[in-house]
Amino acid sequence: MAKAVLYDSVLCVGCRLCEAACAEKWKLPYTDEIAEAEKTSAQKLTTVTTHGERFSRKLCMHCIDPACASVCPVAAFEKTAAGPVVYHKDLCMGCRYCLMACPFQVPSYEWNARLPYVKKCDMCAERVSFGGVTHCSEACPFEATITGERDEVIEIAKQRIEASPDDYHPAIYGMQEVGGTSVLMIGAVPFEELNMPVGLPKEALPDFTWAALKYVPDVVVLGTVLMGGVYWITHRREEVAAAEGGQQ
């Protein structure tokens, strides 16, 4: 079954061990300055963000039907059966449609490289696909970030909300947003106060482009019939002229 990550803003103390673990996995530099920037980039694939006395995290949401995977003209993004959305850099031609399409503004680009690639959280597919947990989950001392089966972590989220209803905003982010995600969030306050985009469509975003794209074969077939037909009608005159000419 598909795995998922649950982030619980209520349990998070903002220690940033998840950031450090992520940087270590990707062999990226991790300094105080980078930590304080609270901004994802090609140098930092997840970040903790501070909102008054509360914290939130930004990482790839691993949508169930990801916009990045649908828009990529070379299929460089893949939603794996285990849950992670992974990036095949050897295919990428650098059009950056994935950056433009992502509803969570997740993919980062190596803007200063001569031959740049996209960088983003891959939910530690190399571990999660084989039953392991992400580096950030492993690093978290407070179970604010956990990895598990999607059904199970949803159950855990529900239990946490039920157990202390005063501490939690009664909703799970990622259940419905853009058709559902494999990273889920719960917190004390509505999600817009935790830096998450709200008001996203409940449908998967690729449905919106497919609504137009599915007509491509029809346009080809109808167009050929129509153009050929119009040509046949409008060029009758020459046929007649040619026929009459031949009789003379």
């Binding site: 299929a75 650098g94 449609y97």
Partner: peptide
């Protein structure tokens, strides 16, 4: 970003992609 790969869509297909 990778102009030398401009031909990739002709080989690595993704028919769901408008691009």
């Amino acid at each position: 970003g990778q102009p030398h790969r401009v031909w990739h869509p002709l080989v690595h297909w993704n028919p769901r992609s408008v691009m």
